[in-house]
Structure formats: structure tokens, C-alpha cells
Write a protein that binds this DNA or RNA. Structure first.
Lengths: 93, 93
DNA sequence: CGTGGCTACTTGCATTTTGCAAGCATGGTC
DNA sequence: GACCATGCTTGCAAAATGCAAGTAGCCACG
């Protein structure tokens, strides 16, 4: 399995990279991600579980029954790839 | 729609980036892609059609009833993003 | 203490995407 | 003109995704 295939195995699923991109701006709560991205709630829950299991992000407990999701170092390391893809997507001429 | 979402709309589908990565090494024929990637034949045909429509690659007629698939400039511009993702995927420690 | 509201999910089911296997078309070879 | 390689298409099963509704924990307020 190539390196690219290994990467896509983790962040290649739908919504995964968009979630990580959103978290590059700092920790976000579940509802924030849902509203900002327009992702279905069951998909969001699934992806957050998978990305946590893959060591890309972790749950950060806040007060009450709320928590935030934040990137690990491994998650932050995706910034370069995300920026590169975003730059490519910008030039759709 | 963010730039990243626009990019993923084109190359976010399963197998798409792997196909492009393979073509970074130069034009490839259908059967080569199929064997190298292990992608189901109907998916390969679908993706090649989509990527051609998106201006990422084009069909290059060879002799007989064979053709090759090659990247356009827009397709080649994905190299940076693919390398970045591959580098990330390599460090799965 | 109990009702109501907010947040973070889970669950059930329809729709879409993906995958497997088999078949078809075209062109060349002998 | 029988045979083979290449490049697909087609039919159907399995899996992923999406929508809508429901559940669970916590706290504020009366």
C-alpha cells in the first residue's frame, strides 16, 4: 500500500478533510462543526470517532456536558496537504 | 463552498487521487492502471470519465484500439498536494 | 423536584456509491 | 474467419452516505 493510499485510508472518507481544515482554526464544538460544514450529524459523529481513533484529533472536555474537538500534532501536520489542495481547488479556471 | 471543498468535489472521490498519482509518472494505459491500483474496472472507467470532464487528464490515442491517459497542466498541478498527503501518510507512527 | 432548554449524540430507513463478475465491442494476428 | 488482447459496459449485491426523528446528560429556573 502506497503512502498516499495510507493517508487516504485515514482522511480520504467524505467530510474528513473538511473537518480537519475547520479544526486548523482551533478547537471546535460538535454543533459548530455541524453548522459550519453542513455535515449530517451521524456522519460527523462517525468521522470524529474515526479521526480520534486514528490519532488525528482528541476530545477536549469543557464544562457542562459540552466538549471541543482539537487536533493532535499528527492532525496539525495535515495543514500542508490541506493548504496545497485548497490552493489547487482555488484555480478552477 | 470553500476552496478545499471545491478540490474534493473533483478529486475527493475514491480512487481519484490514486489514479492521478499513478499518472504523475507519465501516461498510462487502462489495463496498467487497473493492475497497478487494483481498482474495479467500472470504477476506473467512471473516474477517468469524470477526471477528463474536469480537465485533469485527457485521452491520448495510441495505435490499435489502445489509448493512454495523461495529465493536463491542471492535473500536473496536483503533484504538490499529492506529495504532501503522501508524506503525511508515511509517518503513521 | 420537575419542567424546559441546550448540547451531543444514536437510530431507522431511503438513497447513492462502490465492488464483483460477467459480457460486449473493436482491432490486430495468424 | 477463428482467436486473442485491450478497453470498456452491464447487472446486481454490499457498503457508505444522508435525512429525520428520537434519546441522553446536564443545568437553570420556579
Amino acid at each position: 500500500m502506497s503512502d498516499l493510499a495510507a493517508a487516504l485510508d485515514i482522511v480520504g472518507a467524505r467530510w474528513a478533510l473538511l473537518i480537519v481544515e475547520r479544526l486548523l482554526d482551533g478547537p471546535q464544538r460538535y454543533g459548530d462543526l455541524q453548522r459550519d460544514l453542513g455535515v449530517p450529524t451521524n456522519m460527523l459523529a462517525t468521522r470524529l470517532r474515526e479521526l480520534e481513533a486514528a490519532g488525528v484529533l482528541f476530545r477536549l472536555p469543557l464544562r457542562h456536558n459540552t466538549r471541543a474537538y482539537a487536533l493532535t500534532d499528527r492532525g496539525l501536520a495535515l495543514r500542508e496537504a490541506i493548504v496545497a489542495l485548497g490552493t489547487w481547488g482555488k484555480n478552477d479556471a
